[in-house]
């Protein structure tokens, strides 16, 4: 993917990341995107919101949407446990800076991945949707996946822009322009 090659060109040989566990998989997120890592806090459910982002949390006085990458990658969604963490990320949405939280079943370490070990996601052999994977890397004989966060959030935004039928008694309203 173009994003990977451009990142490879820009950085000299390695990538600082934070590794985390989601379901049975290990993911890596650029350390520079991470604002902070929080213990689980009170999560407010947003009725009618897409599965990918059904929660809101209070991060130091800011209301931050809480996204669940496990929904995107079809991973097992276990309950909140002692290792569960919320990673607060600085991203960009619709061209504006946005703070977003993502759930992690556990956060492992800050580490460095060598650019040489990065590969595009193979067409077969994984259950991950290729358009949401920026790259994968082999580390210590296991696979680390770097999610394509811009692609994931862009997709989430476009899904919510065209309402899909909702399970919960039709909480999704059609655009209110027609609704009045």
């Amino acid at each position: 993917m173009s994003l990977v090659s451009s990142t490879r060109d820009r950085t000299s040989g390695s990538l600082d990341v934070v590794t985390l566990r989601l379901g049975q998989d290990t993911l890596a997120i650029r350390a520079g995107l991470i604002r902070e890592v929080l213990e689980p806090v009170a999560i407010t459910r947003v009725p009618g919101a897409p599965e990918f982002c059904t929660g809101l949390v209070n991060v130091r006085g800011t209301v931050v949407p809480l996204a669940d990458l496990r929904v995107i990658f079809g991973m097992h969604r276990g309950p909140v446990g002692p290792d569960t963490r919320i990673l607060v990320l600085d991203l960009s949405m619709e061209g504006r800076a946005a703070v977003v939280g993502i759930i992690a079943d556990a956060v492992h370490e800050v580490t460095r991945i060598s650019q040489d070990s990065l590969q595009d996601v193979p067409a077969v052999g994984t259950s991950w949707p290729a358009q949401f994977v920026e790259a994968i890397a082999n580390r210590d004989s296991s696979v680390v996946m770097i999610p394509d966060l811009p692609a994931i959030f862009a997709s989430a935004l476009s899904t919510q822009a065209t309402p899909v039928s909702s399970h919960s008694g039709g909480t999704q309203l059609p655009p209110h322009q027609l609704d009045r």
């Binding site: 806090v41 009170a42 407010t44 947003v46 009725p47 009618g48 919101a49 897409p50 982002c53 809101l56 949390v57 209070n58 006085g61 209301v63 949407p65 996204a67 949405m93 619709e94 946005a98 977003v100 959030f153 989430a156 935004l157 919510q160 822009a161 309402p163 909480t171 999704q172 309203l173 655009p175 209110h176 609704d179």
Partner: peptide
């Protein structure tokens, strides 16, 4: 933007106990 399409909610607020 992830939630602004939900017309039944106009925003969120932070309560005294820190919850949203």
């Amino acid at each position: 933007p992830l939630h602004s399409g939900l017309k039944i909610f106009s925003g969120a607020t932070i309560l005294g106990d820190g919850a949203v």
